[in-house]
Design a protein around this nucleic acid. Structure first.
Lengths: 238, 238
DNA sequence: AACGTGCTTTGATCTATGTCATGACCCCTT
DNA sequence: AAGGGGTCATGACATAGATCAAAGCACGTT
């Protein structure tokens, strides 16, 4: 039981300082945010909050991946969002979580107490305007994902998911061409299935098929290498 | 070629005055908005804008229904959003449309020139804050729809879509219980299919099945009556 | 009244993906 | 080394929904 530590509590050297909801803030605004912030960490697999539970903070993802999901009465699960570093988590104006939130990998959140944060949204335009921008981007991403869920084949779905991880990895490594990028899948086959609207067996079969067709190379069950990104893009259907 | 007219250009008696992006505005703020606004109307079936085309306004839907959609290279289409009266259309901060926008029924938009509107977002908190609230609600709605696309059966999808229309109709008529609500489907079978990630044949078959099972009654191919809303909800899977 | 067009329904058949079942692999504990 | 839990791969089979095809219906036009 090792809770991942995050010891760097200084905004000045925060890894998401210039992408997160606080990115437009000046020193004085940052000081106010600092007074209502605290960090929380979660182990991979642990729940952050369940839908309907009271939630008195909002947060930025600092390190790791979180998922938003909904579960139907009979147990069917759909993941409706992946939150990567700098993404915003929370529902200003609501006192309870709307969706289940789970730490997919080890996760560190920079949390802000909800009430004072809501006051800052009214009083500090740089925060509200940045959050509006981020929320509109998330909405476009959600709409793009609907095409994946509604119209793509299983193979295209898997390829689409892998492109997300490749792009993220290339971005993190500041590489301009993503050819040859390799990385660890942060999701289990089951979690991928729940994000893609498939079963885990189909996910497994399609990954095997992409491997057989040399679109991806598997160094281990989790570690993937993409030799030719454009080939992957063709397989993803867009 | 009869473009639907909308002659009421006075915000004071605008039907969406208290739900739209302008809902929090005071008289003086409304006067500024008024100076950058104009109305546009579209016939059912007409395109409003294509993805990628330059778009120099944002808008509120005043009357009618618009759809957002994406088309894949091989022609597969996914509708990623329905915009009903008071919903916001547009991409502040972007000079081009992100998705195809189509008038599903006869449609009237209250348009604001984009550049001055963006300035208002900076200078008039009541507008930016309302837009943030609306965008977060849209994002939650998009995530709810992902469950429909990813995890529901064809029958559940149809039932889910009908509940949306029933709720809207009951809301418009200010009826508290939606039992017995009747209304015209604003979408063709094909448009429903594109929203639900199905083919039009499957849509047609499932509507026939729900009719056979007395979940819905069809007065004509388009006009629907829902005798027992709770029965419909059960069929929708949530 | 006849015709054409867009929308819808329905039938027959096919297929991608789900379901069920088994075994492999890997890592941790004893 | 043996056992056990979590994860993953793969085969055999079932089925929901897609595809292909035909025809019905509601219209506006000639």
């Amino acid at each position: 039981m090792n809770i991942p530590a995050f010891n760097n509590k200084d905004c000045g050297s925060c890894p998401i300082r210039h992408q997160a909801v606080c990115s437009r803030c000046e020193q004085d605004e940052l000081a106010v945010l600092d007074s209502i912030k605290f960090y929380r960490s979660f182990e991979a697999g642990q729940p952050v909050i369940w839908a309907g539970d009271p939630l008195d903070f909002v947060a930025s993802v600092v390190v790791g991946v979180a998922s938003l999901s909904q579960t139907m009465e009979d147990g069917r699960v759909q993941v409706t969002g992946l939150l990567l570093p700098s993404d915003f988590l929370g529902w200003p104006g609501r006192s309870a979580a709307v969706y289940d939130v789970t730490a997919v990998s080890d996760l560190t959140l920079c949390c802000f107490r909800r009430h004072p944060f809501e006051e800052l949204l009214e009083s500090t335009p740089n925060i509200g305007q940045r959050l509006l921008q981020m929320t509109m981007d998330e909405l476009d991403a959600a709409r793009d994902w609907m095409v994946v869920l509604g119209r793509k084949t299983a193979r295209e779905k898997i390829a689409s998911l892998i492109t997300i991880f490749v792009r993220r990895e290339a971005h993190l490594q500041k590489v301009e061409t993503p050819d040859g990028t390799s990385f660890d899948l942060p999701l289990t086959r089951e979690a991928m299935a729940n994000y893609l609207g498939l079963t885990l067996e189909t996910v497994s079969r399609q990954i095997s098929a992409l491997k057989r067709d040399k679109v991806i190379l598997l160094k281990s069950k989790r570690r993937i290498m993409v030799p030719d990104f454009s080939k992957l893009l063709v397989e993803s259907g867009d």
